[in-house]
Amino acid sequence: MALPETVAPASDRAARAPAEPGPWRDRLLRVLVPLAILVLVVLVWDWYVRAYAIRPFILPGPFLVAETLVKDWGTLSGALFVTIRITFTALFLALVGGTLLAILLVQSKIVELALFPYAVVLQVTPIVAIAPLILIYVPDTQAAVLLCAFIVTFFPILSNTTQGLKSVDHNLLNLFELYGASRWQTLLLLKIPAAQPYFFAGLKIGGGLALIAAVVAEFAAGSAGAGSGLAFRILESQYRLNIPRLFAGLILLSATGVVIFWMTSLASHLALRRWHESALTRET
């Protein structure tokens, strides 16, 4: 019964092969080039500090910073844990809240009209300006910091997911209508999958913002947050002119940010690699 001559041409078969990992040289370069830059910067930094005899409370050398990182690991790791916990809790809550609200917004025009402007107001008001109020109203400092981080993280996920849920191919919507799809089926089988690339773009932005907001909120809380996160330790080090520890704290923050970026990128890649253009490597 099959139609004649329906075997795929060779070019179609070639197109089917999953994206081959780049040749070894390419992968090695990917690691080696940034690493070489890092080594270079550290060496120049070290040379500069030694050559001009810069005192450690102005600019500590890289090896002193590394030493401090090891020596103060007890204090710093505790602070790191607090910051990470706040960041990820905020990110998780923003993920759940942002996605659910986005779904709600696209279900009803009235709900969107009622809520979206206020989500925008919350977003455009700088968090540093709201933080003092939140610190007064929320008795627990950790909870206040978490709330600040949540507010900042929430919006990019909400707005991206909303955009995604609305950016469905019109022909596909027609197709669903034609086959009598229910509202629920259309949401589950069409809108949510179609929103994925937008959602993950929001997640990437939100992930970075969650850490930034956690740090900013902690700064705003200042010394109020006894036994708190990395930002507090950084402030504390500044007061005490313990600049090596400040640098060590900074390095831990950067590393946390990089890990978050890497995790969100990985999640995005895993979800989209089979079908989305952004995950596609094309040979030309």
Partner: peptide, 24 residues
């Protein structure tokens, strides 16, 4: 109904795309 474009769901396999009308 066949549209001007193939109008397939890019996130679904060929099988799942063809399954769609029955799935609904």
């Amino acid at each position: 109904f066949v549209f001007q474009e193939p109008t397939l769901m890019p996130w679904a396999t060929v099988f799942n795309n063809v399954w769609l009308p029955l799935r609904l």
